[in-house]
Computed example of a mutant assay.
Amino acid sequence: MENFAQVIAALQQGEVIAYPTEAVFGVGCDPDNEQAVMKLLDIKQRPIEKGLILIAADYEQLLPYIDDSQLTDQQRTTIQASWPGPVTWVMPTKPNVPAFLTGQFETIAVRVTDHPLVQQLCREFGKPITSTSANLTGQEPGRTVAEVQTQLGHCLPAILEGETGGRTNPSEIRDAVTGNVFRQG
């Protein structure tokens, strides 16, 4: 539990942390802290235009970022039937969601995780965190604390100790409006 408190403190201080997800380790930060997001993009060597995924403990945590009034009841039902779980949905954003999260898009990718440690992390932090694989762009994502430590340990103040959910593929990414699959799960 000491490590859990350390990870929460790092998030609250605007730091970038790593944590296990359903398939690989992710790196994340406070999505409302622009400096933290810029630090994450710098660590990952990831272009801002690509946008980021938000991972949450429950649907309510996503409501400040998504505009689900643009979805039909059927679309909402389909999304909620896949959560919690390893499906990421690209959804319309509220007008106040900053471009440092959405990149070049007017949508944002979001997921309600079924990983118990990440659910606890988001609950204790009180909101979603950003989620992108724990690796340098172009490298293999870390699947263990040791692999993350090797690639990114020098620039992360805290790595949440735990196991991934055992899935082999990163989350599937689908469009909430059209249902199109952007990345197979």
Rank of each mutant, 00 (worst) to 15 (best):
Glu2Leu: 09
Gly26Leu: 07
Gln80Met: 10
Pro86Asn: 02
Glu140Trp: 00
Pro20Thr: 04
Arg111Pro: 06
Leu101Cys: 03
Gly28Arg: 10
Ile129Arg: 03
Leu160Ala: 10
Asp67Leu: 13
Pro84Val: 03
Pro47Lys: 09
Pro116Thr: 02
Pro116Tyr: 01
Gln6Leu: 14
Ile8Val: 14
Phe100Ile: 14
Val110Tyr: 05
Val145Glu: 10
Tyr59Pro: 00
Gly103Val: 08
Thr178Leu: 10
Ala109Ile: 00
Gly26Val: 07
Gln104Tyr: 01
Ala158Ser: 12
Gly179Gln: 04
Cys122Leu: 10
Asp67Val: 12
Leu136His: 15
Leu117Gln: 15
Asn180Trp: 00
Glu22Pro: 08
Val118Met: 10
Leu71Cys: 07
Thr132Ile: 07
Ser82Thr: 15
Thr93Val: 15
Val181Thr: 14
Ala99Val: 14
Ser69Phe: 03
Leu62Gly: 12
Ile159Trp: 04
Gln119Val: 15
Val145Met: 02
Leu156Trp: 06
Arg143His: 08
Val24Asp: 00
Asn180Glu: 15
Gly126Glu: 05
Ile129Leu: 07
Cys155Asn: 05
Met38Arg: 14
Asn3Arg: 08
Lys39Gly: 00
Gly166Asn: 07
Gln61Pro: 05
Thr88Val: 04
Val112Leu: 00
Glu161Asn: 14
Val97Tyr: 07
Thr77Gln: 15
Ser171Gln: 08
